[in-house]
Design a protein around this nucleic acid. Structure first.
Length: 832
RNA sequence: GCGCGCGUGGUGGAAUUGGUAGACACGCUAGCCUUAGGAGCUAGUGCUUUACGGCGUGAAGGUUCAAGUCCUUUCGCGCGCACCA
């Protein structure tokens, strides 16, 4: 008997799939399409890890399942190759990032082939290939045309180690997402994408996405919409007249929307209804007016405070959240609702980057303002009636207004609108919505990225490189390292930098920053559908057939990538380049595979499981993939278990052995055919439905159960037809998880062509219900027995049978049941 | 602090709409078999009890004939955001 030997059959079938181009698909609008993709990998030198294997075990199970349903399945792959690791490696070793990337791609591609994923290799894309980044640059120029790409001087996150700026989304807990060093704030002129203009649009569509709730919530929180009002507090002349001229100098750094000519400070508040309780103003240390408001004796301490606060890292400032610090400026402002004079303070608990960088302090109804007022002995005025049973000092809920002159007695929700109306009339405020999300900072002072296609002309300013001059090729250079002067290595490629202005032909200079790698990954899901198009980024007709992606699989990038890709698609929709707003219908966000001890796999701990080692050690790719999906629900984190792989291998081996036994035996009988039919139809139904809802672990459990049944039933025998139906369907179903073995067994069983070309087995519901069904019997909610009845038995007969049951009768005794409930096919509940 | 999710055997987990809790697998125990292989096969395995039975889904209440599932309170864990006004 032939033994199950994955190391022999897996390479054999991988070659056949390659030779037959088995997974290449064409755009055929008449056919039902299915587009499934994993998040394309960054091909690192270390090779594929278990996370990749897991992602693509999921992707491939879905792809193959739909393929077997006769759908036109697109399962592409590409390489996300721009970025810091390749560049840092290049700097360290002196090889070019392009060369290192090319080697890594070959390596990764071989590894993907070895796990047997049904990828359409004709659609492979690579973001650092000029034929790809030409179109990334083209998108940039389109955004620029629409005013969605712009340059601005502002304070930005700067990674001192990688010597580049970072987007907000790339700063994790105050640290660089790549190297983990503490980031700093640096004022630089940078390129941005105006994602804030799409904040509402992105927010509106979230609800309808078939995405995990936690990702949707994370995005909603990140966008952070809050509705309220912007309110102007006039600076009191009496306190600051001596400084008035100097005070009104234009803002120099942070863009707070303070119109200095109006001599006022704007604050943002979601609670204008509490305005009568605003007893002070607080400015962020970064606020453009902060220093200028200093008067007399307060000037020095203010200067000192601002200097140290701005220097402090964001981490330091947020870590000591308990103790509030701040200084009085010596100036006052007028509360526009009651004309009260309130002191202006500067404190670092107010953030420079949110709202206007200034707040009105309402200590009675805000915990932070309360802590601040307590510490500095500022007046606390209650303006919303506190519920009687509330024990805390501060009430931040809604309620009835008090101490608010003509608004007394009004409900806060109504007062909010009326107070804003009054302010609007006085031209001292208006309703306003703010967002936590900032514009997407996309320039990087690094070499290994798509050059920003802009030429700076002395006469015309920033000019987009015309489409016929794209791509702006990355020049070959010797030294890739950034020098920390805020310029990328490209700035030193003089021949490349100096170029005529596309408008006037006069000498001009290229932009030397490159684009954030996330720009490249914001449209690749479109390019897969039309990967070879040299005329344009994509043909809308093709994209509108394949896209949006039906199922997108990944375990990372909850905010950054998954928000950016939505943003670009919304823009493309507005540009009429696609006919859908959302790029991804269903998102599967799977968990991590941890090491055997439950901790994160890491090279330094030496607990990394290399998927290729698992394959090579003899278990094979089929066992690896099946095990990864059997570990548990895919959205949960799981810990690797070597014993677990062995168990799944044993299961595959049992299928193999059973098939060989059938092929070698000549004895047939049909004693168990009926039981077999029941088990088979049940299994097909369960496995089909489980795979549909991505419950792979239970689908595999169902197949295991079926195989166990086959072993038990075969002893007495099946007919030839019984065997063929069972093994044929089993092979087709296991193909989703263990495709190599499936094709091998399918061929041995005499199947024509590849398993995936045969249509998925169907079940017959009428065959699932056995003639006799077991009904549980409960007395007062406790299980007391079981009765076996015919499937169409009469309800009254079943109830009678239940009461007659020996053990049941023992518990019922003389008592007369008050109620007998029958749940068809399941149980009888007797209530005494 | 706010938001989201989760608590089930020795372990990973199952129970799709309230209807026999613990499927399937790992581990463990016993037996059989052997061309000693990463074997294979068979049976058993929630806790407790000699048994009948009793108890069991983080804890405490509640709704119901019936609750892992629904409601209230509470404890613990994980993730995301975090002085966002």
């Amino acid at each position: 008997m032939q033994r199950y030997n994955p190391s022999e059959i897996e390479p054999k079938w991988q070659k056949i799939w390659q030779d037959q181009k088995a997974n290449e698909v064409k755009t055929e609008p008449s056919k039902q399409k299915m587009y499934v993709s994993g998040m394309f990998p960054y091909p690192s030198g270390a090779g594929m890890h278990t996370g990749h294997a897991f992602s693509w075990a999921v992707v491939d199970a879905i792809a193959r399942f739909h393929h077997q349903h006769g759908e036109n399945v697109l399962n592409p792959i590409g390489w996300d190759t721009f970025g810091l690791p390749a560049e840092n490696y290049a700097i360290k070793t002196g090889t070019s990032p392009a060369a290192a990337t090319a080697t890594n791609i070959i390596n990764f591609k071989n590894q993907f082939i070895r796990i047997g994923v049904s990828i359409d290799w004709s659609r492979e894309i690579n973001t650092s290939d000029p034929s790809y980044y030409k179109w990334t640059q083209w998108v940039f120029t389109k955004l620029f045309e629409r005013g969605l790409a712009y340059q601005k001087e502002s304070l930005q996150w700067w990674c001192p180690v990688d010597k580049t700026v970072l987007a907000n989304e790339q700063v994790e807990g105050g640290r660089c997402w790549r190297c983990g060093s503490l980031v700093e704030k640096k004022s630089m002129k940078q390129w941005f994408f105006k994602i804030t203009e799409y904040a509402d649009s992105l927010l509106d569509e979230i609800e309808d996405l078939d995405w995990p709730q936690k990702i949707k919530t994370a995005q909603i929180n990140w966008i952070g919409k809050s509705e309220g009002a912007e309110i102007d507090f006039l600076i009191s002349e009496t306190a600051s007249h001596r400084e008035s001229v100097g005070l009104l100098a234009p803002a120099d750094s942070l863009a707070a929307d303070v119109s200095s000519t109006k001599k006022s400070i704007s604050v943002f508040s979601t609670r204008p209804d509490t305005m009568f309780g605003a007893t002070f103003l607080v400015l962020a240390p970064e606020h453009p007016l902060a220093l200028q408001l200093g008067t007399g004796e307060f000037k020095e301490s203010l200067k000192e405070y601002v200097r140290s606060a701005v220097k402090k890292s964001e981490i330091e400032r947020t870590n000591d959240t308990k103790e509030k610090t701040g200084v009085f400026t010596g100036s006052y402002a007028i509360n526009p609702i009651n004309d009260e004079k309130v002191p202006i303070w500067v404190a670092d608990y107010v953030l420079g980057g949110y709202g206007t960088g200034a707040v009105m302090g309402v200590p009675a109804h805000d915990e932070r303002d309360y802590a601040f007022a307590e510490k500095f002995h500022l007046p606390i005025v209650e303006v919303i009636e506190k519920p009687a049973d509330l024990e805390e000092e501060i009430y931040h809920g809604e309620g009835t207004l008090i101490n608010s002159s003509e608004f007394d007695g009004m409900q806060s929700s109504q007062a909010r609108e009326e107070i804003v109306a009054v302010l609007e009339e006085k031209k001292l405020g208006s309703a306003k919505t703010t967002y936590k999300m900032r514009d997407w900072l996309i320039s990087r002072q690094r070499y290994w990225g798509a050059p920003i296609p802009i030429i700076h002309c002395p006469d015309h300013g920033a000019v987009a490189v015309p489409e016929n001059q794209l791509p702006v090729m990355l020049p070959e250079i010797e030294d890739y390292a950034p020098k920390g002067d805020g310029l990328s290595a490209l700035a030193r490629a003089e021949e490349w930098v100096n170029t005529p202005c596309p408008n006037c032909g006069k000498p001009a200079k290229r932009e030397t920053d490159t684009m954030d790698g996330y720009a490249c990954s914001s449209w690749y899901l479109l390019r897969y559908a039309d990967p070879k198009n040299a005329e344009r980024a994509w043909d809308p007709e093709i994209i509108n057939y394949w896209n949006p992606v039906d199922v997108y699989v990944g375990g990372d990038h909850a905010i950054a990538h998954l928000l950016y890709v939505r943003f670009w698609t919304h823009v493309f929709y507005d540009m009429k380049l696609v006919n859908f707003k959302e790029p991804v219908k269903k998102l599967i966000y799977h968990g991590y595979i941890n090491a055997e001890d439950g901790t994160k796999m890491s090279k330094s701990k030496g607990n990394v499981v290399d998927p290729l080692d698992v394959i090579d050690s003899g278990y094979g790719a089929d066992a690896l993939r099946t095990y990864l999906l059997f570990m548990g629900p895919i959205e949960l984190d799981a810990s690797w278990s070597t014993k677990g792989v062995a168990g799944v291998y044993r299961f595959l081996n049992r299928i193999w052995t059973l098939t060989q036994q059938y092929l070698e035996s000549d004895k047939t009988s049909n004693v168990n055919d009926q039981k077999l039919a029941v088990a088979l139809n049940k299994t097909i139904k369960k496995v089909t439905n489980d795979i549909r809802r991505q419950s792979f672990n239970t689908a595999i459990a169902g197949l295991m159960e079926f195989v166990n049944d086959l072993y038990k039933l075969k002893l007495d025998g099946f007919s030839e037809k019984g065997w063929r139906d069972a093994l044929g369907a089993l092979t087709q179903m296991i193909a989703v998880f263990a495709p190599h073995m499936a094709d091998e067994l399918w061929t041995q069983l005499g199947g024509q062509g590849l398993v995936q070309k045969a249509s998925w087995p169907k079940w017959d519901d009428s065959l699932i219900v056995e003639d006799m069904v077991t009904i549980a019997v409960q007395v007062n909610g406790k299980l007391r027995g079981e009765v076996t009845v015919e499937k169409h038995a009469d309800t009254e007969d079943i109830k009678a049978l239940a009461l007659a049951h020996e053990n049941v009768a023992k518990f019922v005794r003389e008592q007369k049941p008050t109620k007998i409930i029958y749940v068809p096919g399941r149980l009888v509940s007797i209530v005494l």
